[in-house]
Simulated scan of single mutants.
Amino acid sequence: MTVVHEFDWPDRVVIGTVGRPGERTFYLQARAGRRTASIAMEKQQSAVLAEMIDRMLDELVAADDKLSIPAQAPAELVDDAPLEQPVEEDFRAGSMRLGWDPRTAQLVIEAYPVDGGLLDADADADADAVDDPDDVDAEPGEMLVVRIPVGTARAFAERARRVVASGRPTCSDCGMPMDEDGHECAPGSGA
């Protein structure tokens, strides 16, 4: 059985971090009432998710002029608050999917564990049953599904970009991240 952390119209959905720049862990966190899910992500996954959300919203506007999709995050939806505490990791995201639900006019974010967390669909089947090798469906052991309206999606993407950019400053000579205790440019970097 797949454990599904599902959030339809969540109260909050954000990308945030725990830790100091250079040692941060990124989280996609969703909350509905008192229920929260925190999915660990890579910094690059956070950046790509924000980019894909904006791209999908822009494509939807171009394809259907009847959709009311803001070009920027509505001010009332901007969320700069820290992650909900305590942050308890449900799983580390491996693959992710982004989709559109035209029935509810919501973006759908799906995240799956790094290892896929795959379970054999027949694991609970009767022990005497004969397994057909062509009929083996593996399903993820755990997943996150978040459905958010378009304004919230713009605000989510905007915050994700800010969080990604708020890390360590980059060296003006070599472009590599600089630590608080100094930085040596890599050989051959032009410095």
Results as ranks from 00 to 15, higher is better:
162 R>T: 08
91 F>S: 02
164 V>Q: 07
19 G>Q: 08
75 A>E: 15
130 V>S: 11
7 F>Y: 15
56 M>E: 14
100 W>L: 11
139 E>A: 11
123 A>M: 13
100 W>V: 12
165 A>K: 12
51 E>P: 00
17 T>I: 10
125 A>Y: 13
141 G>T: 01
36 T>S: 11
180 E>N: 12
47 A>T: 03
156 F>E: 01
190 G>L: 06
148 I>S: 00
37 A>N: 01
73 A>S: 13
3 V>E: 12
90 D>W: 00
60 L>D: 04
10 P>V: 02
171 C>K: 10
136 V>F: 08
178 M>A: 12
4 V>S: 14
82 P>H: 11
174 C>H: 09
174 C>T: 07
121 A>T: 01
114 V>Y: 10
134 D>N: 14
147 R>A: 08
94 G>D: 05
109 I>T: 11
116 G>R: 07
66 K>N: 12
178 M>V: 14
134 D>V: 00
123 A>W: 06
2 T>E: 06
149 P>A: 11
157 A>Q: 03
140 P>G: 05
144 L>I: 04
135 D>V: 04
92 R>C: 01
163 V>G: 04
69 I>S: 05
149 P>E: 14
35 R>W: 06
54 D>Y: 05
3 V>S: 06
29 Q>Y: 10
178 M>H: 01
77 L>N: 03
28 L>C: 11
29 Q>M: 11
129 A>Q: 12
94 G>A: 06
191 A>P: 06
4 V>E: 10
179 D>C: 02
41 M>K: 03
120 D>L: 10
150 V>N: 07
109 I>M: 15
173 D>Y: 09
138 A>F: 15
97 R>Y: 09
82 P>V: 10
183 H>P: 08
28 L>S: 07
54 D>G: 13
24 R>D: 04
97 R>W: 05
183 H>R: 08
47 A>C: 00
51 E>F: 07
162 R>E: 14
118 L>C: 04
67 L>G: 03
46 S>K: 03
108 V>P: 06
11 D>L: 07
152 T>Y: 01
72 Q>S: 14
186 A>T: 10
17 T>F: 05
97 R>G: 13
157 A>W: 02
94 G>V: 06
124 D>K: 09
90 D>Y: 00
158 E>Y: 02
42 E>R: 15
139 E>T: 13
60 L>E: 04
142 E>S: 13
159 R>P: 04
95 S>G: 14
51 E>I: 01
15 I>F: 14
48 V>K: 08
71 A>M: 03
115 D>V: 08
86 P>D: 09
125 A>T: 12
59 E>W: 02
154 R>V: 03
115 D>T: 12
182 G>K: 10
19 G>Y: 08
14 V>W: 06
20 R>F: 07
86 P>T: 09
155 A>V: 03
113 P>N: 12
18 V>T: 12
54 D>P: 04
167 G>I: 06
5 H>I: 00
36 T>C: 10
89 E>P: 00
180 E>G: 14
153 A>K: 02
124 D>G: 15
14 V>S: 06
31 R>E: 13
60 L>V: 05
75 A>I: 03
